[in-house]
Write a protein that binds this DNA or RNA. Structure first.
Lengths: 199, 199
DNA sequence: CGAAAACATCCGTATTTTCCACAAATTTCA
DNA sequence: TGAAATTTGTGGAAAATACGGATGTTTTCG
């Protein structure tokens, strides 16, 4: 029985490439590649994948939110998070969101394949151990909000995208400003990028 | 004679995937995949590639800076820029940097392959035409204002620092927003950093 | 286990800042 | 001289931010 893998990423080109790489492995079967949230739930129900390889940024939202949702709705699915860089904030958030592995796009294919196999065995694989000592200054939700701010979104747009109220977004924004020690959202974006908070 | 392609991207995993996809084509030959600046010049000299497929963000810096350098040092090499999204500003910047094509990672493999072939024929392929009419790059003053915005300054603080009136700053800000095609200063900072407008 | 801390969610009011649409004068430079 | 950049303005709408407070959950830790 092959390990059924579902790919989730905004980027068609990247997904097709990874699909190609994974399909060279005899024990892996890519059952789908989705780039829209509606497709996501449908494909999971349809194919019952063992592993979901998900980009940490999916459709503007934080992929970790999807990870949480999937972990509760489909406990059999194990999520492997794909990120652009190794970033403590994100690794920690991914771990706490219930992901089974965290792989950077800077890593080799072998790393990803190894992570998929280990996750399938039920073993979580994260790059380092010191991740979990180093506490993340921003919460998962705050990071999600911050990314959307950097993407030119207003608080109302953010509230719609994250399905929370405008007030809640405002609260998160004020927490972000306090934690990053800035007074404007533009300053927060500047500092966040300096600190490498975005994967 | 095959078209010799060199891939340039921070992300090993993505590059390997694209390499697989390109090597299915009989007229393409991937002569290398580099993820470090020193390798880049060496590989170009070594393999004399016809086409360089380069991520718009390379090693934290702006891939377009490399594009300019390559275009002047190795005029025979044609650069195809890979970006995360379709964005007029990026496309225009790529065009002005001397790139032959602009492809988003959201596009299909076929789009990339087509762009490579067209570039090799000496034909520049950019998604739309209206790109080059409407815009101009940021002026020095606008850049100065933008940098201060990223440094968490308000318009009044900026006006004091630059010895101009609040109104003038507001005008510059609105020019910046128009030119970068964003609606907020936070979005402007996000886009400016992605475009490599700051060091 | 139980207390304390942190987090996420919501609401109101008030002030500040940002942003837009209209013009227009001055300098700079090709 | 004409084009572009820089400068300044008015007025107003929209958004963001600061200042309160409230409730329930989860995490952390003694």
């Amino acid at each position: 029985m092959k390990i059924k893998v579902l790919l989730v990423d905004d980027h068609c080109l990247v997904m097709d490439g990874i699909r190609q790489l994974l399909e060279r492995e005899l024990d892996l079967e890519v059952v789908g590649a989705v780039s829209s949230p509606t497709d996501l739930e449908q494909k999971i129900a349809q194919h019952q994948p063992d592993i979901i390889v998900m980009d940490i940024r999916f459709k503007g939202k934080n992929g970790l939110l999807w990870t949480r949702k999937i972990s509760s709705l489909f406990p059999a699915c194990k999520v492997v998070i794909l990120s652009r860089s190794h970033c403590l904030e994100y690794m920690n958030a991914a771990y706490e969101a219930g992901a089974y592995a965290f792989v950077s796009k800077q890593d080799s294919v072998e790393t990803l394949i190894h992570a998929i196999r280990e996750s399938h065995r039920g073993v979580k694989s994260f790059p380092t151990h010191l991740v979990f000592h180093d506490r993340s200054s921003l919460t998962e939700m705050e990071l999600a909000v911050l990314e959307l701010i950097a993407q030119d979104k207003t608080n109302i747009e953010i509230s719609e995208q994250l399905n929370i109220s405008k007030r809640t977004v405002e609260h998160h924004v004020s927490s972000i400003l306090r934690k990053l020690d800035v007074k404007s959202r533009a300053g927060a974006v500047g500092k966040a990028i300096e600190l490498g908070l975005f994967g």
